[in-house]
């Protein structure tokens, strides 16, 4: 018999991935709330589709789509993650102590994703409400077609930041190699200062609001205009 305080340890060196994810899905109906996954060995699709307020700790590096489509769960990866970690996250948190590969939190609709290290290209691509805090730097084409939510970068941003952006708020402390189509620097208003401050605090980031610049949409591409054809 398990109780809410038990930690269920699953060793991916000996347990098939399918069994792990099935247990996490079935566990939403009751059972342990805390899970510890060891020896992930770079496996793809670890802890995907979880729909329960679990605390899940993953000890080691994971492959693609870690905690994809997460709802409610609080996931911590003590290592690096592959492509698409937290893709389409709905709610909950994903905390990565290492670096994240491409498309981190792609299309995320809610929740918070924290990357202690760097995130590669296309971080926050097509994001739809998720909040992302990267304590290091991010790669090129990040926040491409980003619709809503917030992306905080404590380091530098790569080229074509926020290309074709809609209403996402981007905050960058360091340098920006280049802005994408329709992405401009915008005023850091009181609302944004509060939002940024809240996210820095939530992520435990050692940075000050005043060190950041905000970027967002110039809204020139919101409705097709032939005179802007070169920018599409």
């Amino acid at each position: 018999m398990t109780t809410a305080t038990d930690v269920k340890v699953v060793d991916l060196a000996t347990t098939p991935l399918r069994e792990l994810n099935q247990r996490l899905h079935d566990g939403a109906a009751g059972g342990p709330l805390r899970w510890r996954i060891i020896n992930p060995g770079g496996a793809h699709a670890v802890a995907v589709g979880v729909d329960a307020p679990f605390e899940i700790e993953i000890e080691g590096h994971t492959g693609y789509y870690t905690a994809g489509m997460n709802k409610h769960a609080h996931v911590r990866v003590n290592g690096n993650v592959g492509v698409g970690c937290g893709e389409n996250i709905m709610s909950g948190t994903i905390h990565i102590t290492g670096n994240a590969s491409q498309a981190c939190a792609a299309t995320g609709r809610g929740g918070l994703v924290i990357v202690e290290g760097d995130a590669a290209a296309r971080c926050g691509i097509s994001m739809k409400g998720v909040e992302i805090v990267v304590k290091g730097s991010i790669g090129h084409m990040s926040a491409f077609m980003a619709q809503s939510g917030a992306l905080v970068v404590c380091g530098d941003a790569g080229d074509s930041l926020g290309d074709s952006i809609y209403e996402t708020h981007i905050y960058v402390r360091g340098s920006v190699e280049g802005l994408g189509a329709d992405c401009i620097e915008k005023e850091l208003k009181e609302f944004h200062r509060e939002e940024l401050g809240r996210l820095l605090t939530a992520a435990g980031a050692d940075a000050k609001v005043d060190e950041f610049k905000r970027y967002g949409s110039a809204r020139r591409l919101y409705n097709f205009n032939i005179d802007h054809a070169g920018e599409y």
């Binding site: 991935l17 994810n21 699709a45 995907v48 789509y65 994809g68 489509m69 492509v83 698409g84 893709e87």
Partner: peptide, 12 residues
């Protein structure tokens, strides 16, 4: 790999 993720989310 993406399809594997979708299958895992929907329990195959």
């Amino acid at each position: 790999i993406k399809i594997e993720e979708i299958r895992e989310i929907t329990d195959w």
